[in-house]
Write a protein that binds this DNA or RNA. Structure first.
Length: 139
DNA sequence: GCCAACGTTGGC
DNA sequence: GCCAACGTTGGC
């Protein structure tokens, strides 16, 4: 299993909206960046990811799961863009803020810290576990 | 709302 | 293939 992180501006698509979709999940449309797309192409069914609120909150708020592997993005005719479908698994008991991640030596190499503009990014297993523990949930 | 960082586009 | 112009993301 590989771990990921999905960024979303809560104004555009929030964790509450994602949870309201239930097991049907939500197609992660709109990514127009090759690195982020390639990350989605590498995802497998059942992979887990964090759901991060950018701009407002700037915190990791929930855990999602990949329920459909990468396929053409239905929001565009441009064949270059694919995306996955993700469903909400559970919220973190305590949101983990970007500020906190920046202060912890073990998280200094997270893409969230080092590559702020990448909207879909990989998370190392060690990072995954630390953030789950900080968030008060089982990893 | 500003702007730095970064990615993409398109003229040459 | 270079690079200037432009657009977007996301922290502040």
């Amino acid at each position: 299993m590989t771990f990921w992180l999905f960024k979303s501006e809560p104004d555009a698509w929030s964790w509450d909206q994602q949870m309201a979709r239930g097991d049907a999940g939500e197609e992660w449309t709109g990514v127009r960046n090759y690195q982020a797309r390639n990350n989605m192409r590498a995802m497998k069914m059942g992979d887990r990811g964090f759901f991060y609120h950018s701009n407002i909150g700037k915190e990791i708020v929930g855990v999602v799961e990949v329920v459909r592997e990468s396929a053409p993005d239905s929001s565009t005719e441009d064949p270059r863009w694919d995306c996955v479908v993700i469903k909400a698994v559970k919220p973190l008991k305590h949101a983990v803020t970007l500020d906190l991640c920046k202060t912890l030596p073990e998280l200094q190499n997270m893409a969230l810290v080092t590559n702020t503009r990448l909207s879909v990014q990989p998370v190392r297993e060690t990072e995954w576990k630390i953030i789950c523990h900080l968030g008060g949930i089982e990893d």
